[in-house]
Write a protein that binds this DNA or RNA. Structure first.
Lengths: 230, 230
DNA sequence: CTGATCGCTTGATAATTGTCAAGCCGCGCC
DNA sequence: GGCGCGGCTTGACAATTATCAAGCGATCAG
């Protein structure tokens, strides 16, 4: 555990208030590792051995049942993932794989639980982090339960447009098949959903999506602050 | 705030470790109220003024978007709800209504946040409670994303059968239309889903569901511990 | 350059799910 | 009892979504 790695951890709100010695103690036995793309980090039924911190790259959390598979969420640096599982000392509940070459700091879950008991500041921040994660899944759940596939795509485009500076031109940050899985549809259906949005001013060229009539798209998307805002 | 009400709160794991004076302080300004059936307690876009404790009755948490509405989860006594929202001091994110006449203890959200800062034991338990809620929504999200409507119903029946003592006869604890909404389908579709399960030994008579070939139903349902176990 | 692979798209078709309309049935009320 | 209401069911149909198959085009190794 180098000092630079400790700095990365410290920069996260979750660990910002943690006492120095508690932080040092927690990081004992932690290690930073680089994984190539498309590597499975853990399976949903595995026991949670580590809290993960994505330092660089991109990670997909997904789930499987029957013979189906679906993306639960995407992790972008710098962020922790599977905190809830690490704290409850159970299984991961979601599987994870790298989407690109990624650097991940792995902190023994037991250390995290110890730190939670010892450190008030960390416990406080954990509460806020978990509440935020909870509301994140609640939003995803609403999204899939109350919207059609085309509406989900339309809202995704609107959110991306805002995030990328309201320029009317966005670059899809992930492959289309991953996007399809995240939006709860097949890749074939995503293609058709894009085609459906053509009359609403959507033009697609590879990973570039052009938004020529944002207002029209909004009438279709009916965006909701309680689903689309973070 | 009577002593009996304090006992109810104390009996919940979430508040079990809380210091006596912190508990008393938190309960200042709390009140127990009885609501008739079908009353909206709050709307998802309302600011979170209270942490709720369902003492008696039954409450539905639901969400709306477009012109659609869907059940998020059902609360049964004795349990708290909207803890995450109370702690983050934002909006409720979900709407709530009583399904039957219900008794609810309402604790000012600000008191809860104060208690969280002051009381280590409460902070610890909050972390565990939030992690459990998080995994609950994750399971619901997997359920709807990876299963068809008929599969969701089949798994619901299997879970209820286990909960009600593996007798092969279950009594639906909620109206069918509420069940339909919880399982993410229309009432019409639920009727048809029950009909589809007939060849798998399911017989429905009002709120009573008979399960004559549990093994056959399992082959269809393909239950998963990571979705169906609590 | 050539061939192979992979992601994406498109078409045809099927399965799933929702909508609208009508009717049934149990229950409470007068 | 008779009536009306609400929840549930059923049928016919439409919309949505998935599946299977084929082909396109970019990329990359030989």
């Amino acid at each position: 555990m180098r000092d630079s790695e400790k700095m990365i951890v410290r920069s996260l709100p979750l660990f910002a208030d943690m006492a120095e010695d508690h932080l040092d103690e927690m990081l004992l036995g932690s290690f930073l590792q680089r994984f190539p793309a498309t590597v499975v980090l853990f399976s949903e039924s595995d026991h949670t051995d580590f809290l993960h911190v994505l330092v660089d790259g991109q990670v997909e959390l997904y789930a499987s049942a029957n013979n189906r598979e679906g993306t639960m969420t995407l992790i972008k640096p710098v962020a922790t993932f599977v905190l809830a599982s690490a704290l409850t000392d159970g299984v991961y509940q979601m599987s994870a794989r790298t989407l690109e070459s990624s650097q991940i700091l792995m902190i023994p879950a037991e250390n995290v639980r110890t730190a939670m008991k010892k450190d008030r500041g960390f416990a406080q921040k954990s509460v806020l982090e978990l509440a935020a994660c909870y509301h994140g899944v609640v939003r995803a759940y609403k999204n899939i339960k109350l919207r059609t596939a085309v509406e989900r795509l339309a809202n995704y485009i609107l959110v991306q447009n805002r995030r990328q500076g309201d320029t009317g031109v966005i670059k899809l940050p992930i492959e289309k098949r991953t996007l399809a899985s995240m939006l709860g549809m097949t890749p074939e259906n995503l293609s058709r959903a894009f085609a459906t949005l053509k009359p609403y001013g959507i033009k697609v060229d590879g990973a570039e999506v052009r938004l020529e009539k944002p207002e029209d798209l909004e009438t279709l998307a009916k965006p909701s602050a309680l689903i689309d805002t973070h």
